[in-house]
């Protein structure tokens, strides 16, 4: 199909789990690559040495600030890409690279890692460890509609992406962990005990005690899933009231 957007996968210090998650869309990934996006850059996936011009850079991993090459790569990605997406906890909020290792022991190396938004402007955050295949898929479809869709589709994609773009501009989200949920939702009287945070936590660090989240901070890996999944972190009626139409659009695009 003509008029595809160009997408690259930029790999910083991460475990490749985000890329695996993208691939876990199975035939959906083939559909995305067939109809909506050309993969123009990606470690092991595209035979391209230097980061080229592209519409969307999907960045996985934190940046090791002692590694000159990584720092240059992330700066280049920003210069070459129209939209930079921080895919996953490492890129968005530091995740295990923040040395909150989910209860692991300290390790002897002395390198330091920062989420990519500490070094460059980021347009969209997809938190979580790993980010889910469906969330990456939704952002891919919406990025396509934003760049290539009709005016209506552009407006819809902009509305859908707005909260994820707001996260990317929010310094709190780039330091997100269970405490963020505590400070931004529970401490300001917004929590109503639905359990989304506990359901979303990939390391089962959150349990619900008497209807409120209890976090085991030793286990928290700073992925930000609990905070961003919470319906009281962001909830825009103009998007959510249209859940049926939006689900139709996404499913239709993946058919």
């Amino acid at each position: 199909m003509a008029n595809k957007i160009t997408v690259g996968h930029v790999h910083m210090s991460g475990c490749t789990g985000c890329l695996v998650s993208l691939a876990d869309n199975y035939l959906g990934l083939i559909k995305i690559l067939d109809d909506y996006a050309d993969l123009v850059y990606g470690l092991t996936l595209a035979d391209v040495r230097h980061i080229p011009e592209m519409d969307v850079a999907l960045v996985e991993g934190s940046v090791c600030i002692q590694d000159h090459e990584s720092v240059e790569d992330i700066k280049t990605a920003r210069k070459k890409a129209k939209i930079v997406v921080a895919v996953g906890g490492c890129a968005a909020s530091g995740n295990i690279n923040r040395f909150d290792r989910g209860g692991q022991h300290n390790q002897p190396q002395h390198e330091s890692y920062v989420p990519i938004s500490d070094l460059i402007d980021v347009d969209v955050f997809i938190p979580g460890c790993a980010p889910t295949p469906q969330m990456i898929r939704n952002v891919c479809v919406m990025a396509y509609l934003l760049l290539r869709g009709s005016d209506d589709q552009k407006a819809l994609a902009a509305k859908y992406l707005k909260p994820l773009m707001a996260l990317a501009k929010n310094p709190i989200a780039s330091k997100a962990n269970f405490n963020t949920l505590m400070q931004e939702v529970i401490n300001v009287g917004l929590c109503m005990g639905c359990g989304s945070c506990a359901g979303a936590c990939p390391v089962r660090a959150i349990s619900m005690e008497f209807g409120k989240p209890q976090g085991a901070r030793d286990l928290c890996i700073n992925c930000g899933a609990c905070y961003s999944q919470c319906p009281r972190s962001f909830f825009h009626f103009e998007v959510m009231d249209e859940y049926e139409a939006i689900t139709d659009i996404i499913n239709g695009a993946m058919k």
């Binding site: 889910t132 469906q134 939704n138 899933a225 609990c226 319906p231 859940y243 689900t247």
Partner: peptide, 21 residues
């Protein structure tokens, strides 16, 4: 609020792998 959370989990399945469908 829980229905809102469910729909958010469907549209923004940030930590809700394979749940939306």
């Amino acid at each position: 609020c829980q229905i809102q959370a469910t729909r958010k989990a469907q549209l923004y399945p940030i930590g809700m792998r394979d749940v939306p469908d």
